[in-house]
């Protein structure tokens, strides 16, 4: 699903060397590491916002830089760490924008689009938020709504930049459990960055861990001990 090949990432110069690995469908991966170690850079590289310094990323066996601009929204959806702060935008309108790359020139929704939107509401259990304005949502609700928008995009890959950062404990667990079940049941490859090491360990998912000193990123099995993981990252 996501395969890296001698990948080096960064803005102008290489910030991080990424080990060769393949991330599978149906799995949730936790991207962990220090602030400024290159987690967001990695997500930006995978989502096509940034070109690799060297080496390559393959998404569904296609090299990322060869995927046309218009096809990216159908391959990768990205949930940014900051929810857009917009007045008078209804939840359902916000989620419908996830269908943008599928709709016609004027963006009219078809019945298939509407069905996907309704499905995403029930999966994330946010039907009651449908007619609310996004500016009136709590942080937890915003996160679920943002995930719903990523779901209607129907991409095999979903990336999330610190989705649990502003959430309380119960919402953190809710969001993580939700993402794990989405990965499994909808057969998607989900990568999220997080600083909640303890919670991530409880989730029994594999890690993409960044070693700040050596500037490398490795795929680490979920059976790793907390001590080993912390030793590697921090």
């Amino acid at each position: 699903m996501i395969r890296t090949d001698n990948l080096k990432i960064g803005y102008k110069q290489a910030l991080l060397e990424v080990e060769n690995f393949t991330l599978q469908k149906g799995q949730l991966y936790f991207l962990i590491g220090k602030n400024g170690s290159g987690k967001s850079t990695f997500l930006k590289t995978i989502s096509g916002q940034l070109s690799p310094i060297s080496g390559s990323v393959f998404l569904q066996n296609k090299q990322s830089i060869e995927i046309p601009f218009g096809e990216f929204p159908k391959t990768v959806s990205f949930v940014s760490s900051h929810f857009p702060n917009v007045d008078f935008l209804k939840v359902e309108e916000f989620i419908a924008l996830g269908r943008s790359s599928f709709t016609s020139y004027f963006g009219k929704l078809q019945s298939t689009d509407n069905k996907l939107i309704t499905d995403s509401f029930s999966r994330l259990k946010i039907k009651h938020l449908r007619g609310r304005f996004t500016s009136q949502l709590s942080d937890g609700e915003k996160q679920l709504v943002a995930i719903a928008k990523a779901l209607v995009q129907e991409t095999p890959i979903i990336l999330l930049d610190e989705p649990t950062a502003f959430l309380d404990y119960s919402n953190k667990i809710l969001v993580l459990e939700m993402l794990k079940s989405i990965a499994k049941e909808m057969n998607k490859c989900i990568v999220l960055s997080s600083h909640d090491i303890d919670l991530s360990l409880d989730m029994k998912c594999d890690f993409l861990a960044v070693n700040f000193e050596e500037k490398i990123m490795q795929l680490v099995n979920h059976s790793v001990s907390k001590k080993e993981l912390l030793g590697f990252c921090f």
Binding site: S47, Q49, F69, G70, F72, P73, S77, F78, S80, P84, V86, L89, F94, L97, G98, S100, S101, T103, Y105, F106, G107, Q153
Partner: peptide, 21 residues
Amino acid sequence: IIKPLNILVLGEQEAKLLGVN
């Protein structure tokens, strides 16, 4: 350009990710 305008409300970064030129 109403469709790109509707998406631009989310900001340029989001709009790009949704395929707006």
